[in-house]
Amino acid sequence: MAVFGFTTGILMLAGAPPMEAYGLLLKGSLGSGKKVGAVLTAWVPLTLCAVGLLYTFRIALWNIGVEGQMIMGAVFATAVLRWGVESRLPLFYLILAFPAAALGGGLWAMGAGLLKTKGGVHEIFAGLGLNFVAQGILLYLIFGPWKRPGVASMSGTAPFPPELWLSSVSGVRLSPEGVFLAAAALAVTVWMFRYSRLGLVFKAAGNNPTAVMLFGEKPGRYMILAMVLAGAFAGLAGGVQVAGVYHRLIPSISSNYGYLALLVVMLSNYRVALVPAVAFFFACLNVGGIQLPMVLKIDSSLAGVIQGAWVLAALAAVAWLRKEGRPEEAR
């Protein structure tokens, strides 16, 4: 309620009728099949990144580097797709782009993981640093070796021919493969956390690394594994952005979905079951937010303010609920 009051207040301050603004956000995100398609298009990378982050959060690591991992996924996917241009087997390269994307993200995450476990660098700093490096590599490639012929522009590489695009539902512009990937990622993760030994060890290592060590396991190795898994999922998200959304490599290929995914996971209280719903909500805000400037002539970043307010409120609520329930749920 407080959040609602707060966001309403902000909207009124901005001179927008709040009810209309909320209505626009909703209609602008779910008002038609196309809109839902656009929302799902944002939902896919957001969910993939968030699912990856569940692994690292489970082992108590802050994988801020998810953004860079997504970028490297996009870079690896682009590299493969570039080989596929004018080849006789475009489908082969299109499929290969995804393992490559996962590899790119995974390797990049492994870098942060090794820095953490071998070098003693906190994963937040390692991740942030690697984000900058990834961004640098991305810009270098776009402006340098992968530039369009005769052009030097930060607006991106030349688009791939349509045979190297993921398919899209006609009229909706949503690639079913992307949705399938995200759904599969969710399913695998649910299974891992519920039934696999690995999921259990992640949790144990996150809660008490020393205890895990006493049981003869090496927490460092599991940390790296969790990082690699997170990076692979983020890399896939990058691959989807390249092959399914932009059909080329652009400087903001990650669309900040990595950072946004961190919020998704926090707002989901680190639970895999809530991740798709929260990611969907964020995707709605992202897509519907464009209505605010178009109709009400207010800045669309207000959608971001609403988003932020929800996250803060949810975190506060979680903290409060934990405090309330501390006696039986002490952690």
């Binding site: 602008g28 656009a38 932009y246 652009i250 400087p251 903001s252 979905y257 897509v287 178009m294």
Partner: peptide
């Protein structure tokens, strides 16, 4: 009617066809 700041840096994740739909 207009939409401004139509570039991937200001509006991440948004594409031209999507805005044309809008």
């Amino acid at each position: 009617i207009y939409i401004d700041k139509v570039n991937p840096a200001d509006r991440p994740g948004v594409t031209i066809p999507q805005l044309a739909d809008d």
